[in-house]
Design a protein around this nucleic acid. Structure first.
Length: 466
RNA sequence: GGCCCGUUCGUUCAGCGGUUAGGACGCCGGCCUCUCACGCCGGUAACACGGGUUCGAGUCCCGUACGGGCUACCA
């Protein structure tokens, strides 16, 4: 059975790149009926925090990327990792290295090009007896012995990838303080958890030969590897957790819907529909790991907004209401009619809620430029009568309102616009809104007339609210 | 610098030896119209370059250029 994992290190919020990796793993597990494991790689004492762990879980939960097992914490599995290091040592695939950091630094500096430094295998030659003896009194690290030849694997995203062993140094698997190093922990955990496929960012490609060496040293079968192209920012640089604006939770706060982000992430590098939002189930059904692109893609916020806007206009109304609640700060909640006329012109929940405010809040301000555009003279002269006409309407629906408005305009020799524009400004405080008749209808007779009267007073008093 | 990976419109996804190189976002224009959106219609725009292989190459191979990743007793 397929078993995959997402193994973030809690040194920052869940960002877009991590979420994408998690998503691909999740989708692959869903598609194959396998299991998806969550493991927190919190072995970096200094940088890992509980808060960040919680933040990552929050991000995953919000996106509804559900894991089947875990979260496991790498920091709680140190003994296992150490056992593996010892086993490597016993089997002769690792050795103690007594070189101090200073000594290494010294030798490195002597190189014509220190950047090309790789551990010089100085301690590989030390005999077992001597090593055991020195171990009692000296500090040491354990290094993995990289075998001669080539290390290669058939990456199921990238195809065949090959490294020359000479390019890989005998890296540290166990530090001088006895703590395991990343590559060792990963292998030990992936193996003990029974991970069958490792799907991770391509920034891990260079770790793979090292991990393969450990698998070999341990005498165990390695899983299959697939390296996903990275998601790049507009500058075509790796999108990283250092870019605060890429945090998943930040998108939530910006009024992006979880399903929209889910769709957007799923569409990157895959042939999954990007014209409209699909359900999570449908995405999993369509997901094909073999079709993931080899090249990286740029994060396009406009596309996300498009998807989000589309979802807002088309999703189930009750669900939309639930989502909106997180962004709504007034006691009274807008009704279905108000939602119906504003949703198609809102790309985020924040926009939606802004568009809805005039339906609830009475004392909004009038937009300066829209205010300057209306004819104050005509408005003062005719609006009182216009309001009077509206008041007479018994059945408050679009057709009747329109009939009345146009009729009144004609009667007074006005253009419909002369009534529509001020009405719009008085109803929502700005120059843009749904169709005026829809707006009147959605707002209801009572509220509409109250706003109209307030507006008229405002104009008559020369710009003072009364 | 070294090693690894990549390269189709500005962005994104198709195309998997023979296509007028297609869709979407964005942008531009039009329709609708009371505004802004939505929607609909139309337009703009790409196979990085050079060699091969082949009757024929965006599709296969090799270089070059460019881009990215990694290069810790971090994960």
């Amino acid at each position: 059975m397929v078993k995959v994992r997402f193994a973030p290190s809690p040194t920052g919020y869940l960002h877009i790149g991590g979420a994408r990796t998690a998503l691909v793993n999740y989708l692959y597990a869903q598609k194959t009926g396998g299991k998806f494991v969550l493991r927190i790689e919190d072995t970096d004492e200094n940088r890992s925090t509980k808060d960040m762990t919680a933040a990552i879980l929050e991000g995953l939960e919000w996106l509804k990327i559900q894991w089947d097992e875990g979260p496991f914490f790498q920091s709680e599995r140190k003994e296992l990792h150490q056992e593996c290091a010892l086993k490597l040592l016993e089997r002769g695939f690792a050795y103690r290295c007594f070189c101090s950091k200073e000594e290494i630094e010294e030798r490195k500096k002597r190189l014509e090009n220190p950047a090309e430094w790789k551990y010089d295998k100085n301690c590989r030659a030390i005999s077992k007896e001597e090593s055991d003896k020195r171990a009692a009194t000296e500090k040491f690290v354990i290094r993995c012995k990289i075998p001669e030849g080539k290390i290669e694997w058939n990456d199921f995203v990238k195809g065949k990838i090959s490294f020359n062993s000479s390019e890989i140094e005998d890296f540290v698997v166990l530090r001088s303080d006895g703590s395991p190093t990343y590559n060792l922990s990963v292998v030990a955990d992936d193996y003990s958890l029974g991970i069958t496929h490792i799907l991770r960012g391509e920034d891990h490609i260079s770790n793979t030969p090292k991990q393969l060496a450990i698998y070999k040293g341990l005498g165990i079968e390695p899983p299959l590897f697939g390296h996903l192209p990275l998601i790049l920012g507009k500058d075509r640089k790796k999108l990283s957790k250092r870019h605060g604006t890429t945090s998943v939770i930040a998108f939530k706060k910006e009024g992006i819907l979880s399903l929209a982000l889910f769709n957007f992430l799923a569409s990157l590098g895959t042939n999954i529909d990007e014209e409209k939002c699909l359900s999570r189930e449908e995405i999993a059904r369509r997901f094909e790991i073999e079709k993931i692109k080899k090249s990286s893609s740029v994060f396009d916020y406009d596309k996300l907004l498009f998807l989000n806007g589309k979802l807002i206009s088309e999703m189930d109304l009750n669900e939309l209401k639930e989502e909106l609640k997180n962004f709504w700060e007034f006691q009274e909640f807008p009704d279905d009619k108000a939602l119906a006329v504003t949703r198609t012109r809102s790309r985020t929940l924040i926009e939606l809620s802004k568009n809805l405010i005039p339906f609830i809040k009475e004392d909004f301000e009038y937009d300066e430029s829209s205010l300057s555009k209306i004819d104050k003279e005509k408005t003062s002269k005719y609006f009182g009568q216009f309001i009077f006409h509206l008041e007479k309407i018994s059945e408050w629906i679009q057709d009747k309102i329109e009939q009345e408005l146009r009729g009144f305009a004609e009667e007074k020799g006005l253009k419909a616009k002369d009534l529509i524009h001020p009405s719009r400004l008085f109803l929502v405080g700005k120059g843009e809104s749904p169709s005026i008749f829809d707006l009147f209808y959605a707002m209801g007779k009572e509220k509409s007339l109250r706003r109209l009267k307030r507006g008229l007073n405002f104009i008559k008093s020369g710009g003072k609210d009364v």
